[in-house]
Design a protein around this nucleic acid. Structure first.
Lengths: 110, 110
DNA sequence: TCTGATATATAAGAATATTACATGTAAGGG
DNA sequence: CCCTTACATGTAATATTCTTATATATCAGA
């Protein structure tokens, strides 16, 4: 698994990305992110839930209580229009960061 | 410039990378990293210095006071063998993280 | 002598992460 | 029926890290 220090800041992008696929509740988000990144990205639920509240306060996502088929209550989050709008510039930033780090490496190896 | 939340955790890799080129003091590190990443990565010095102490405590880098030609004292940091050893797995981790995030995006866009 | 660049550092507060704690339901096996 | 595993959400305490502001001091040039 990827170390703790590294994945700082990646969680928000991961959550927004996974929600682009459709509404999801926290537990399932974590499961899918772990699955789709082949275990590379895995956050503890204790880190996830507070993060979801923060993102909800910023109006990037919106949560609503739902009852699943098996009668379990769970909080289902969906992307808001604001969150959707946030997604491409956020990806752009990440992409720039990757390039920047690659440049550093290149120079160091030259 | 890249947003604050994003660059979390990137600083250590950047510092180690830049020190691979040779010993440097903090101020110059910041300048070069900013230059070589074309302004994408830029950290405030107030964030840099405490980070250098942390990395020194972990024995990844070692600092020593030097006096430059113009008589100014400055703290010159160099990679330790341990820091050098840390560098490739750290890059590996980053690379995995990038791929993981790309996978998420791919799935979301599919 | 004043300003801007160089150079390092700390303090206070905000944001975030980790670990541990706390609760409860459902499904399946023994 | 009981136990365990998976599902599902949360809080509290603590630790770490980041930002903003402040402080110090030298040097070069106007």
């Amino acid at each position: 698994m990827i170390g703790a220090g590294i994945k700082r800041g990646t969680a928000e992008l991961a959550v927004l990305s996974i929600l682009e696929d459709g509404p999801l509740h926290g537990y399932e988000m974590a499961r899918r992110i772990e699955e789709q990144t082949k275990g590379a990205l895995r956050f503890t639920l204790a880190a996830l839930y507070p993060m979801l509240y923060r993102m909800e306060q910023r109006r990037w996502i919106r949560g609503s209580w739902e009852t699943s088929d098996n009668g379990r209550r769970r909080r289902c989050y969906r992307l808001t229009p604001a969150g959707k709008k946030k997604l491409s510039p956020l990806r752009q930033e990440w992409s720039e960061l990757f390039q920047a780090l690659r440049r550093l490496k290149k120079v160091a190896n030259a």
